[in-house]
């Protein structure tokens, strides 16, 4: 079973979003996603300043047998990418909701956050695809 913290928002494509105090948001991939991918060997995160639309491919995660784009859950400007992942992609496997964060974004419209899945809805979407 995978871990789905109650205080985060989610997408059906397995990204999570956390609101930060300064109004920006932090984005990563869920525990379910990292388990499905297996040991990550490479992660590419966006550079600060990049403008993203919701649904844009904004990062890449690679394991030995799979590669997957990470899609931005909402529009905004990239404030920071997690540079540590370059040399330690395993942080996403070890701590997907903490040290494994991928990028921070200044949302164009913070209200959109409320339209993303909550933990219960994400749990339900996982259950639906498993069936």
């Amino acid at each position: 079973m995978s871990d789905i913290p109650a205080d985060l928002r989610y997408t059906a494509s397995h990204e999570w979003v956390r609101s930060l105090a300064d109004g920006s948001v932090e984005i990563g991939i869920t525990d379910h996603a990292q388990q499905a991918l297996g040991d990550l060997v490479f992660v590419e995160v966006p550079e600060a300043g990049r403008e993203l639309q919701a649904g844009d491919a904004c990062a890449v995660v690679e394991s030995v047998k799979a590669a997957s784009d990470v899609y931005s859950p909402l529009a905004g400007t990239v404030v920071d990418g997690n540079a540590e992942l370059g040399s330690a992609p395993e942080l996403i496997n070890q701590d997907p909701y903490g040290k494994g964060w991928m990028l921070r974004l200044k949302p164009a419209n913070p209200a959109v956050l409320g339209t993303l899945l909550d933990a219960a809805a994400y749990q339900a979407s996982l259950a639906a695809t498993d069936a």
Binding site: V41, A67, D69
Partner: peptide, 12 residues
């Protein structure tokens, strides 16, 4: 580095 290749990345 097979994740670059067509049998995994397909259209990408």
């Amino acid at each position: 580095l097979q994740a670059r290749e067509q049998h995994i990345r397909r259209g990408k």
